[in-house]
């Protein structure tokens, strides 16, 4: 669990947000993946996709198969394909109901985690992201401390969540989750970062 790399990710996401990027990539580790999924759950980012060095194709621009291929007979498939060739390719503004397979390089070193950033009213949704535990000084908190922190008080040398919409991510036995979730489940753990 390298917090050095996590610090780089934090800075990178802040920079990408400031530059108003739509999609950016970070190195793949289990920690990063779990944290990104946590961020997505909290609504800071729009998508988390495993991919290669090139960005994945935007989902909405991909040609959607109309039905799951397994259900189709070969003859019908040929017929449908002919039909699809006649219809326009793009289905704008519709949520994708299909699953598609992104090409992930076999070499783990070439894999990247592609993160879609969000903007609202010309402002990034993810403004700031800072480490709390540092590589040289990790901070563990119990659920009581977390309860205080989420109420805006300082505890265990961690400043309270006093800003509007501030979130803190904690890595626990049950995975990475938001501080308030930990309080609900009475879990403690190592605090990772705070996100505004």
């Amino acid at each position: 669990m390298s917090l050095v790399n996590l610090a780089h990710v934090c800075s990178h996401l802040q920079n990408a947000s400031k530059a108003r990027l739509g999609l950016t990539s970070i190195p793949v580790t289990k920690l990063h993946v779990a944290l990104m999924l946590g961020l997505q759950k909290q609504g800071f980012i729009s998508s988390v996709t495993l991919g290669g060095p090139a960005p994945p194709k935007p989902v909405l621009l991909q040609k959607p198969p109309k039905y799951p291929p397994a259900l189709l007979k070969a003859a019908e498939q040929a017929e449908l394909e002919a039909e699809e060739a006649a219809t326009p390719e793009v289905a704008w503004g519709r949520a994708p109901e299909w699953s598609y397979k992104e090409v992930v390089p076999a070499n783990p070193g070439q894999r990247r985690l592609w993160v879609g950033l969000k903007y609202w009213k010309n402002e990034p949704v993810l403004n700031k992201m800072h480490l709390i535990s540092k590589p040289t000084r990790r901070i563990w908190v119990n659920s009581d401390d977390l309860a205080k922190i989420t109420r805006g008080r300082e505890s265990a040398f961690v400043k309270g969540l006093t800003k509007t919409g501030e979130c803190m991510f904690v890595t626990t036995d049950k995975g990475i989750m938001e501080a308030r979730e930990c309080v609900e489940k009475k879990l403690g753990g190592m605090v990772l970062c705070r996100v505004i």
Partner: peptide, 12 residues
């Protein structure tokens, strides 16, 4: 920033 706006931006 108002809490309503933040919630709307995050889809909460």
């Amino acid at each position: 920033k108002l809490p309503e706006d933040i919630a709307r931006a995050r889809g909460k």
